[in-house]
Design a protein around this nucleic acid. Structure first.
Length: 705
DNA sequence: GTTAGGG
DNA sequence: CCCTAAC
């Protein structure tokens, strides 16, 4: 029979697999039913993408990093000067370290000025609070008119409440074109914090300081004057608003800057230094001229090796060359098409001690999301200042006695990255509208706050800060807030043809995707030639009056190009990573982008058939190497799947077939080869079953020899 | 990292 | 094409 088939096939190339894994087919597959939703998730449990850190500041001295325990005025001055000088430079520069991650996001937010002003600060002092501790919360990010939405955290009687509408928030999103695939342009938005011209040097200083705190010199780049930063990238996984907050009070400073960095998780980290980018075409003052890019700390850098360039070039070749390591290459390769695919959360490096998280509350109206907890925790000690102060224990004690309060200052909100697809033919106006809709939809959605402590979600909302250990010295910089999508929130479908996306409660805020015209989806995923324009587009969008982007913007391009990966990874503390991954698993997660569909051409089918005839089924890696070694986008799994579909296609009637018709001749070969190899496989299995002993003996003898 | 299968 | 499981 077999022989007959073989003869009929007239094929002389069949090879018996060296080591048939015959038993594979017999494998029993148990559906993996891991459900995140099974886990109870409380508001705090839901950790979105971005985690912020809180800096508790008792003292007025600004503290940015652990290392800088006490900022010395002179130093500050120096920094300030430096910063200014930078701003003055006309040319923008971008320096990237080897370890770039495509998606790093940095958000610089301003700290709210001292919260003495209750109007803008919702912080209230509890009666028992003797100190003038204020809770300054500023949500920097919001839609342009998010004032109404902005939420404020209130600290009352040890409780933190969320209040909306207290602080003016401004959100600006600067979209930039991240990539173009097919006929569509994908825009990625960078969040830009509000840029206020009036920001004083302090802001700059803050940024600088933050940057300095990075051990590895994660460079913080500030381009533009406004302290706000922008982050770009969207990674598939991080769809939540990321916020880093600095909690600290700066008596003398009006604004605090906060830097949030988001990196492409996939192990790549990047150091980007954006010099003072002159906004050559900065049309509007608000536009995020100022960009701050921070690199991950060395720690992270190590973790994230060289995936950097991946996003830069989409071409397979580049990828390949970039990754000598096969595994690395493969991994990347699979993601090549959609950079944001499978992105993991990046940790945001805790550059400074005072990173703050942010709450979505500020943005959302939902009352239920208030952060509450009986906060009796005390953060008596602030870095830098504490040096001279009494022992921590003492301080704690004293604070306790008087119901110490912890100050939290959430400096910024990061606008979630948006993924937009819009036909190239779309007008700028429609683009703007689309973006606006997307932003509005997201901001309008409910958000909740997650609390992270040492990277662990704090699930028990009833625990006090003290009980949680937040008051402990070592926890100071381990506290983070995250914005989480409100599970109940349904993402409005503003997009044409788009279906409403829901925000899974256990997943980070998904990227909003706005397909303008499904039919236009381009096949060409990453045409490098388009990339350069991306940044431009972003600029364009940013400003209303901006006209054609200038090529000079390359500095930006570099960074943006990398991030063409639409992957926006929220800044997240490393510790928070443990938490985040769970979200990704959620089936509901919208974060992961599918690779673009690339139908097999007849030629490819032919090559596949030929290879399978020769190698047989079950040796997909070999098939890949043999026939598709140059087709980076075809993985052996793809080939296997294609074969599967080919077999299916060959078996169905021609009328039922779809897509590009495959020559019947090929389909016949498919069936023939499939039958042949199936028999071979069956034969092998039978053999093994019948003569297990012999196999064993053989195995033994082999192992001995 | 591969392969087999279900989705 | 994705995701898992089993190797």
């Amino acid at each position: 029979m077999e022989l007959q088939k073989r003869l009929d096939y007239g094929f002389n190339g069949y090879q018996v697999p060296a080591t048939p894994r015959a038993t594979r087919s017999a494998r029993k597959r148990v559906p993996f039913k891991k459900r995140v939703e099974d886990n109870r998730i409380s508001a705090f449990d839901l950790l979105a993408t971005v985690a912020g850190k809180l800096l508790l500041d008792k003292e007025s001295t600004p503290v940015f990093s652990n290392t800088s325990s006490a900022e010395d005025p002179s130093k500050v001055e120096k920094n300030t000067v430096k910063e200014e000088r930078r701003d003055g430079s006309q040319s923008s520069k971008l320096e990237t370290c080897d370890q770039y991650s495509n998606d790093r996001e940095f958000i610089v937010s301003q700290l709210v000025s001292q919260t003495n002003d209750l109007r803008s600060c919702s912080f209230r002092e509890s009666p028992s609070l003797k100190n003038d501790t204020h809770f300054g919360l500023t949500s920097v990010v919001t839609t342009s008119d998010c004032s109404e939405r902005s939420g404020v955290l209130k600290l009352m009687n040890g409780k933190i409440k969320n209040e909306t509408g207290c602080l003016p928030c401004k959100v600006e999103t600067g979209p930039f074109l991240c990539g173009a695939s097919g006929g569509r342009i994908k825009l990625e938005f960078e969040n830009k914090g509000p840029i206020h011209e009036e920001l004083d040097r302090t802001d700059k200083l803050s940024i600088r300081e933050v940057a300095d705190t990075c051990p590895l010199e994660d460079p913080v780049v500030v381009d533009g004057k406004p302290p706000l930063l922008v982050s770009s990238d969207s990674s598939g996984k991080t769809h939540s608003y990321g916020f880093n907050n600095y909690l600290s009070s700066f008596p003398g400073k009006r604004d605090d800057l906060k830097v949030v960095s988001r990196d492409d998780d996939e192990k790549s980290s990047r150091c980007t230094y954006l010099g003072p980018i002159k906004k050559p075409f900065r049309p509007t003052p608000l536009i995020g001229d100022r960009r701050i890019r921070k690199t991950m700390t060395s720690k992270y850098l190590k973790v994230a090796p060289r995936l950097n360039d991946v996003t830069l070039s989409n071409s397979d070749e580049n990828l390949k060359s970039a990754y000598c390591d096969r595994s690395a290459y493969k991994r990347i390769r699979s993601e090549r098409n959609y950079p944001f695919k499978k992105r993991k959360f990046l940790h945001y490096s805790s550059v400074s001690n005072s990173d703050g998280g942010i709450s979505s509350e500020g943005i959302s109206d939902s009352p239920e999301q208030s952060i509450n907890g009986n906060a009796s925790g005390v953060y008596p000690k602030m870095r830098g200042v504490t040096g001279e102060s009494p022992s921590l224990a003492d301080q704690r004690k004293s604070f306790h006695s008087r119901d110490s309060h912890v100050k939290f200052r959430i400096k910024s909100f990061r606008v979630p990255e948006l993924f937009i697809e819009i036909p190239e033919s779309a007008t700028i106006g429609s683009l703007k509208r689309t973006v606006m809709e997307a932003v509005t939809a997201i901001l309008g959605g409910g958000l909740r706050i997650g609390v992270l402590l040492q990277g662990k979600k704090v699930r028990d909302d009833n625990k006090t800060l003290l009980q949680t250990g937040i008051s402990r010295d070592n926890q100071m910089d381990a506290l983070g807030f995250s914005l989480e999508p409100n599970p109940s929130q349904i993402f409005p479908s503003h997009c044409p043809g788009g279906s409403p996306l829901t925000f899974p409660c256990d997943t980070p805020l998904p990227l909003a995707r706005y397909p303008a015209t499904p039919g236009l989806v381009a096949r060409v995923t990453h045409d490098p030639s388009h990339e350069p324009h991306m940044p431009n587009l972003g600029h364009f969008v940013e400003s209303d009056h901006d006209s054609a982007p200038s090529p000079t913007d390359m500095s930006l391009d570099k960074s943006t190009t990398d991030s063409k990966a639409l992957v926006a990874v929220p800044a997240i503390s490393v510790e928070a990573l443990d938490v985040v991954p769970a979200h990704r698993k959620s089936k509901r997660s919208e974060v992961v982008q599918r690779r673009i569909r690339r139908p097999f051409s007849v030629a490819e089918v032919e090559a596949l058939v030929q290879a399978v005839e020769k190698l047989g089924t079950g040796r997909w890696r070999d098939v890949k190497l043999r026939a598709f070694d140059n087709a980076k986008h075809r993985t052996y799994v793809d080939l296997k799947d294609k074969w599967k579909t080919l077999v299916h296609t060959a078996r169905i009637s021609p009328q039922q077939r779809r897509g590009e018709p495959v020559p019947q001749e090929l389909l016949d070969r498919v069936l023939t080869a499939h039958a042949y190899w199936s028999q071979q496989q069956a034969k092998q299995q039978l053999k093994q079953q019948q003569q297990p002993e012999s196999c064993l003996l053989l195995y033994n003898s082999n192992s001995k020899s």
